Amino acid sequence: MSKIVAALLALGIGANQAMAAEPLTVVSFGGTNRDAQDSAFYKPFTEKTGIPVLAADYNGEMAKIKVMADTGNTTWDVVEVESPELMRGCSEGLFEQLNWPAIGRREAFLPEAVSPCGVGIFIWSTVLTYNSSKLASAPRSWADFWDTKRFPGKRGLRRGAKFTLEFALLADGVKKEDLYKVLATREGVDRAFRKLDQIKPDIQWWESGAQPLQWLAAGDVVMTSAYNGRVNGAQQEGQPFAIQWNGSLYDLDHWAIVKGSKHKAAAEQFIAFASQAQQQKGFVQRIPYGPSNIATLDLLDRTTANNLPTARQNLANARATDTEFWLDNGEELEERFNAWASK
């Protein structure tokens, strides 16, 4: 044993940590989300364990993860994924099965946050947002979003079938409780596309979470769909943006470990650390996404708690995204959407 390792052991630092503090690559969706993760998770984890975190961004491309899992050339360790991608990737063997005793007690989390291959990080919402200084009256629903006479100008939507088709049906009068029943039928899908036809020339499609808020600030759009945490970040920078929670769609993002990760034990150690209530509190205080650890809510002040998607008043007219529906129908609907959008 070397003198260095012996000295580190004398200080209470394990031999494995002392000799092999290889970097852990953690990949997320970037932007203010990554900034909050860096402050609440990455830096404190490194300070506690000595394991460096290499932070990287992506746009949720499962193709990259599939190539790594299929070839065994895995360069990512922990990735942030949305619910449908987690379930699909787990069933296809793209993610490692988690050793839950190394993560924590399942009962400590929201039920939706617990799965064989993933641990929920936070609940987020896609909301309708607008510049309150530029509109004479506030839009109150997705029907108002479609009202180009009362609210003339471009409006932003995420380029893809997911969320877009739901918002179209909500704008057309479908009740949130019936949303996926209607969308599960051929008639319902046709209805959604007919509704989108009504405002197609007025839509500006966004592909990254930062774009809709940039467009809103520049006046390129009068209103847009956006992730609630991004809106809050813009508000903190002084932008007069407002959120309409009515008709919002919420879901979870999860931590998963890419199949073939060479640092699985360290990856589970990171996930366990980032999932603690105190760490999630630090994250939520920087970006208002709902925590997955149940105990976190007791640590938050009322103002912070009221800005979360999980606040009672914000959930009142919201709808959970149906993960099973998008697993079963996503590929077909995305193909149809892309063909429609490219015309």
Results as ranks from 00 to 15, higher is better:
F41W: 15
A7W: 06
R286Y: 03
D190G: 05
W100E: 03
F29R: 04
W215V: 02
F109A: 01
R140F: 02
A305W: 06
R302G: 07
C90K: 11
I294R: 15
D328E: 12
S39W: 09
N232W: 13
K175Y: 11
V189M: 05
A339Y: 02
N314E: 10
E331N: 09
A339V: 15
V231F: 06
R158E: 07
G219M: 05
W206N: 03
A108Q: 01
E82L: 12
Q239L: 13
R159P: 07
S39T: 10
K176A: 13
L183T: 02
T49K: 03
T148W: 04
R158S: 14
K181D: 14
P101R: 02
N306W: 07
L333S: 01
F145S: 02
L98Y: 13
L11W: 07
G93P: 00
S39H: 11
V27R: 15
P139K: 05
Q278T: 12
G31E: 11
T296I: 06
V222M: 08
R88Q: 14
W124H: 09
V182G: 03
Q97N: 07
V231K: 00
L165P: 13
Q17M: 04
L11M: 14
A108C: 00
E61S: 08
L315K: 07
A316L: 15
S208P: 00
G209A: 11
G233W: 04
G12M: 06
A56T: 14
L183C: 03
E187L: 07
A108R: 03
K343V: 00
T323G: 00
N232T: 08
A69S: 15
V258T: 05
Q97E: 09
A318D: 09
W206V: 00
D301T: 08
E268N: 08
S132Q: 07
W124R: 10
R302Y: 10
F167K: 10
A55Y: 04
P201L: 06
L135K: 01
Y289E: 12
A256F: 04
A108F: 05
V81L: 15
L216K: 09
D144R: 05
T148V: 15
N314Y: 13
P101A: 02
E96I: 09
V81R: 15
